[in-house]
Design a protein around this nucleic acid. Structure first.
Lengths: 154, 154
DNA sequence: GTTTATTGGTTTCATACGTAACCATCCTGT
DNA sequence: ACAGGATGGTTACGTATGAAACCAATAAAC
């Protein structure tokens, strides 16, 4: 048998896309995390949950998980943490008492608005550092990945 | 004071780039992980370590960490795990006895080669699903991020 | 109308993680 | 030559994680 021309014997990790993607994502995430962690000591699951409830006004824990790609235990813990801060309230559904509807309280909404503006500043800054060209490329590439993996829930 | 036109009161999480990036990266990583996890029960730090040593032939733990963006405790644990499998051997540097040089053993190299081919298949498949256009866009976008964050170590 | 299965959400448990403390060795200044 | 850093690597410890078991409540099957 002759050697398979497609089989090379080295892999350059720094050029391997799954590695590059995760490394870039984690670093960007880490930088963004500094902002909300500094502000309120929030964790990522907490801020995702806050962002999702803020976006939908009234939503269940399960839907939060679907929308923000989080495991239900993460959501459960984040909801409890936000509740302890009195940033959200739960309301058991009358018709189906397994379901809890989540809503932000007034201080919760205030925190959410602050968070939104932090996120906007961060994103704007990131965009300007990357340049519109790279930004659009990234948007395009990520869109293609999202089409392949299960699409984001609305 | 009139309202700040730049301040909107909602954020669409599914369009927020740090979120999209991390979600895409974690999903791609998770899928790739299935391959090497199925094969040898390897963890991500272990496979990154294996990939890095394989790429450099002979390298120290610190350099592995720099090259593969891993915390030194992760590297330390991964090295121990690979050593237990007898996939790598350590050699204390004669001149500076704090330093350990890491090399793959014969079975380690065999596993590495297998890993490389798994990675190549995965990447090729991913590329074909995304399409060359999106693939190049992603490459471009990630390159720009890498230029901003501390550049990958060689 | 009782089983039986499913579902929303919580808890348990074993594992993975990073910070910080640590150990041994080497380097620096004096 | 020796005190005071650094440095490569490991360990200890508190926290975060997801799989699986679990608990109520509802829905389906019969």
């Amino acid at each position: 048998m002759s050697p398979d021309p497609k089989a090379s014997s080295v892999l350059l990790l720094e050029e391997f896309l799954p590695y590059r993607l995760l490394r870039a994502a984690e670093e960007v995430s880490r930088r963004f995390a500094r902002h909300y962690k500094d502000r309120h000591g929030m964790t990522r699951p907490e801020w995702r949950t806050l962002a999702t409830i803020g976006q939908f006004e009234r939503i269940t824990a399960k839907e939060v998980g679907q929308h923000s790609s989080m495991h239900k235990t993460k959501v459960s813990r984040a909801v409890r943490a936000l509740e302890k801060r009195r940033w959200l309230k739960r309301e058991t559904d009358e018709a189906d008492r397994r379901i809890e509807h989540l809503e932000l309280t007034t201080p919760g909404r205030r925190a959410y608005i602050e968070l939104v503006s932090i996120a906007e500043v961060f994103e704007r800054d990131m965009k300007s550092r990357l340049g519109g060209d790279a930004w659009r490329a990234l948007d395009h590439g990520l869109g293609a990945i999202e089409k392949i993996i299960q699409p984001p829930r609305r």
